[in-house]
Simulated assay, not measured.
Amino acid sequence: MQNISAAWLYPIILVAGALQAWGPPMNGVLRNALSNPWLASLVSFLPIVAFLVVLMFCAPRPLPTLEGISGMPWWAPLGGLVGAFAVVAGLMFVDKVGAGAFAGLTITANILMSLIIDKYGWFGTEVHPLGGWRMLGAVLMVSGIALIAKF
Rank of each mutant, 00 (worst) to 15 (best):
A138C: 04
W74Q: 07
L63G: 09
T106Y: 07
T108M: 01
L39R: 03
V94H: 00
S143L: 15
G79V: 13
I69H: 03
M113S: 11
A50S: 05
G137K: 11
A146L: 15
L46C: 04
A86V: 14
A146S: 13
G71Y: 09
W8F: 15
K96Y: 07
G17H: 06
A7Q: 13
I145Y: 02
L52W: 14
P24E: 00
T106V: 15
P64G: 03
K96H: 08
F93E: 03
S114N: 08
S44N: 06
H128K: 15
V97H: 01
G17M: 08
G124A: 02
S143H: 10
L130G: 00
N3S: 11
V142R: 02
P73H: 06
T108P: 00
G132M: 12
W38L: 14
V15T: 07
A103W: 07
R61K: 14
L63Q: 11
M26V: 15
G144L: 10
L136R: 08
F123T: 09
L30W: 08
I13W: 10
M72Q: 10
A146V: 14
V97T: 05
P25T: 05
F151S: 08
V88I: 14
S41H: 12
P11F: 07
F93P: 03
P73D: 00
A18T: 12
F93Y: 14
G132A: 10
A99K: 05
G23W: 13
I145D: 00
R61P: 02
G121V: 07
M141I: 11
I12A: 07
F45Q: 07
F151E: 06
W75K: 05
T125K: 09
I117Y: 05
I4D: 02
G28M: 04
I69Q: 00
L112C: 08
P64V: 08
P11L: 05
R61A: 05
M56E: 08
N3M: 13
P11H: 04
F102L: 08
V97D: 00
G131Y: 09
A16W: 10
R31K: 15
K119T: 11
A7W: 14
V87F: 04
G23N: 13
L14Y: 08
W22M: 14
V82I: 15
K119D: 04
D118H: 05
V139S: 06
G104N: 05
W38E: 01
P62V: 10
L34N: 02
G104E: 01
G79A: 07
S114G: 15
S5P: 13
A84I: 12
M56Y: 14
N110Y: 11
L140S: 00
G98M: 06
F151N: 09
F45V: 11
A103D: 01
V139D: 05
I48L: 13
L30P: 01
P37A: 02
L9T: 09
A59S: 11
A40H: 04
P64H: 02
L130M: 11
G132F: 14
P62S: 09
F51V: 12
V142P: 01
I145E: 01
A40F: 05
S41I: 09
I69L: 15
F93W: 12
L42W: 12
M56I: 08
T108W: 04
